[in-house]
Nucleic acid binder design. Structure first.
Length: 209
DNA sequence: TGCCAGGCCCTCTTTAGGGCCTT
C-alpha cells in the first residue's frame, strides 16, 4: 500500500505546535496543535486543539502564547489529541515554518503513543530564505508582512500560525509559478529548492524555465 | 550552583564559530 493512499500527493498539511519550551529532549511537551490541510491550493480541512502536557507551563509560555494553565487544565491529554492528529495527517506531506522544530515535537509526541507518520517534511523558512533573500528576516510574522499576506493579527497560536504559514507557502508557490508551468504541487521540487545551496540556486531556478 | 536544543547557513570555514529560527 502506498504511504499516500489516504492522502493524495497533491494534498498537504501545514502545521504548527505551541509547546512548553524548545526541546522535547529536555522534557518539553506540546500544548497546542494547529493545522491546515491544503488540496491543490485550497483549504479543505483544519485541525486545532489544546492539549494538557501534565504539568504547569511557565509564565513565559503563558505570556508568549496566551495559552494559560487555566485553559490547559480542561484540555485533553497529549496522547488523545495526538492520536486524532495522526489520523488527520494520515500520510500527507507536511509543511512547517522552521520545520526541524515542529518535526522534533511531532516525532516525540507520536512516539509517546506508538504512532508514526508516512509523509515528508518541508520547511517554509528554508524555502523563504531562498526565495526572499532581501526580506528583513525570515521569522514567520516578518515574511507575512514582507509578502503582504493578510492576517487577523493573531500570532503564536497554533492554528493562526499554521494558516499564515499555509498562506506564505501558497504565495511562494505563486511566485515560483510566475512564468512557469507550476499547476501541480511540486512538493519534491520545493523541498529540493529549500535545500539547494545558495551558489546553485540560480542554476536550479533556471532549470524550471 | 550552574547549566540545559538542534538543524541550517554563512564566513573572517572545512582541525570552527556564531547567528537565525522555532516555544
Amino acid at each position: 500500500m502506498s504511504p499516500l493512499t489516504h492522502c493524495p500527493a497533491d494534498t498537504l498539511v501545514v502545521l504548527d505546535f505551541e509547546t512548553t519550551g524548545l526541546s522535547p529532549n529536555q522534557g518539553d511537551r506540546a500544548i497546542e496543535i494547529g493545522a491546515v490541510k491544503l488540496h491543490r491550493g485550497e483549504v479543505v480541512d483544519r485541525f486545532s486543539q489544546l492539549m494538557n502536557p501534565g504539568f504547569r507551563v511557565s509564565g513565559f509560555i503563558e505570556s508568549y502564547t496566551g495559552i494559560t494553565n487555566g485553559m490547559l487544565a480542561g484540555a485533553p491529554g497529549c496522547g488523545e489529541v495526538m492520536a486524532a492528529f495522526a489520523d488527520f495527517i494520515d500520510g500527507c506531506n507536511l509543511v512547517a515554518h522552521n520545520a526541524s522544530f515542529d518535526q522534533r515535537f511531532l516525532d516525540a509526541e507520536l512516539a509517546a503513543i506508538g504512532r508514526d507518520y508516512a509523509g515528508d517534511f518541508v520547511c517554509s523558512m528554508l524555502l523563504a530564505r531562498r526565495l526572499y533573500p532581501d526580506a528583513p528576516n525570515h521569522k514567520l510574522g516578518s515574511l507575512v508582512a514582507y509578502r503582504g499576506i493578510r492576517h487577523d493579527g493573531v500570532f503564536h497560536r497554533a492554528l493562526a500560525d499554521a494558516q499564515m504559514t499555509a498562506d506564505l507557502w501558497l504565495a511562494m508557490l505563486a511566485d515560483l509559478a510566475s512564468g512557469r508551468d507550476m499547476t501541480t504541487p511540486h512538493f519534491a521540487l520545493l523541498k529540493k529548492l529549500s535545500r539547494t545551496p545558495k551558489a546553485q540556486l540560480t542554476r536550479v531556478l533556471a532549470s524550471l524555465d
